[in-house]
């Protein structure tokens, strides 16, 4: 897709709760497809998007695919910068402990596991937006 060496910074912003609308799953699919292009990808979860990362989802009762398992695969796709708005979490009565523990394995350090999720302030989010070449909104 891109010229040789022209790596761009892609940010996917996720602001919707899962299941109530299709945005969360659509975003995941686009992220996974986009990962094939080996760009510098970050994900940002803010507003109701933080609900997407809650651990322990069980969708059997509503007959929908439980795609929360797929977030754990992001590390395999070299998507390992997952930013979460810490104020959005707090407003919703949630803490980092309520979220899935997402990790990636560093091939260059004998597959050492490293955390993917970084809690960020709103100032840091403002800076993150300014750094991007492309922003996708879901």
């Amino acid at each position: 897709m891109s010229e040789a060496g022209a790596t761009k910074k892609f940010l996917y912003i996720n602001r919707k709760a899962p299941y109530g609308t299709i945005y969360a799953w659509e975003s995941l699919e686009v992220v996974l497809i986009g990962a094939a292009f080996e760009q510098d990808v970050s994900l940002l979860f803010m507003d109701d998007g933080v609900y997407q990362l809650i651990k322990g989802m069980d969708t059997k009762g509503i007959g929908m695919k439980n795609f929360s398992a797929t977030y754990s695969a992001l590390g395999d796709y070299d998507v390992n910068k997952i930013y979460v708005d810490k104020d959005a979490l707090a407003e919703r009565g949630l803490t980092l402990e309520d979220l899935q523990h997402l990790v990636w394995e560093d091939e260059n350090e004998d597959w050492a596991e490293k955390d993917s999720i970084r809690l960020v302030s709103r100032d840091e989010i403002a800076g993150l937006l300014e750094e991007q070449d492309v922003i996708f909104n879901f």
Binding site: A35, A36, K65, A69, D76, Y77, E105, E107
Partner: peptide
């Protein structure tokens, strides 16, 4: 079964290697 997706070929190759 674990991730609810079929991996892309690059991901498959890396995971098989591991």
């Amino acid at each position: 079964d674990e991730y609810q997706i079929a991996p892309a070929v690059r991901v498959l190759t890396k995971a098989i290697g591991k």
